[in-house]
């Protein structure tokens, strides 16, 4: 794990880094961070526990334990990555280990939202391209330069047109992925909605 963790802030338009492939479909958030590590009131120490059980099982051969991946920051995954529990601890653990972007075949919905909310862009590519990256990484390092403006990933040998939901792409480019202040700008509209909703008029108050 890298010691110099800094939380992303503001506009995110370029991410450059080494790829770390992790093979497997339906990798759930319990595997990314087992439930016993959720006993915490902050996220600070989660990075070292990412994939704890999988790593122990593979006795040093897990991609997150390999020396050559020590400085990697772009995670390459297969399909339905991050399924299961809504725990934000999962992307927080990945981020604190050093992951800054994820490219995969597909992502589970809640995991995807959590990544956006903490500043980790998730891109999709067809299965064939993911396999191409995985194979390439078998023998050599792959450094990708990701350009969010163009949705492009470039390297010396491989180039990809990344797919990302347009609203997410815009949020990263404008910095609005950190949504609280954007949402608060509509404070009047929120108040109006609160006053308009039928059920808030007939509900028994919470005493």
């Amino acid at each position: 794990m890298k010691s110099e963790f800094t939380q992303p802030i503001g506009k995110i338009s370029n991410i450059n880094g080494q790829c770390i492939p992790l093979i497997g479909n339906d990798i759930d958030t319990d595997r990314i961070i087992p439930a016993r590590f959720l006993k915490c009131v902050n996220f600070d120490s989660l990075g070292e526990s990412v994939f704890e059980d999988d790593r122990k099982t593979l006795k040093g051969k897990h991609p997150f334990d390999l020396k050559e991946n020590k400085n990697a920051s772009i995670l390459i995954v297969n399909s339905n990555f991050g399924c299961g529990s809504s725990r934000e601890h999962a992307p927080q653990a990945l981020m604190r280990w050093g992951i800054k972007a994820i490219i995969g075949e597909s992502f589970a919905d809640i995991f995807y939202s959590n990544c956006i909310a903490i500043g980790i862009p998730c891109f999709t590519l067809p299965k064939k391209s993911i396999e191409e990256i995985q194979n390439y990484c078998d023998n050599q390092f792959l450094f990708l330069e990701i350009d969010l403006k163009k949705s492009l990933a470039k390297s010396k040998d491989l180039n990809f047109n990344l797919e990302i939901r347009e609203s997410s792409r815009k949020m990263f480019l404008t910095g609005e992925w950190d949504a609280t202040s954007t949402l608060l700008e509509n404070e009047n509209l929120i108040e109006n909605k609160f006053n308009d909703l039928p059920y808030l008029k007939f509900n028994t108050p919470l005493l």
Binding site: R87, E88, H89, P91, I110, S113, N114, A117, A179, T180
Partner: peptide, 8 residues
């Protein structure tokens, strides 16, 4: 939802 959305 995740924790950042709980915050929101």
């Amino acid at each position: 939802i995740g924790t950042s959305q709980v915050r929101d």
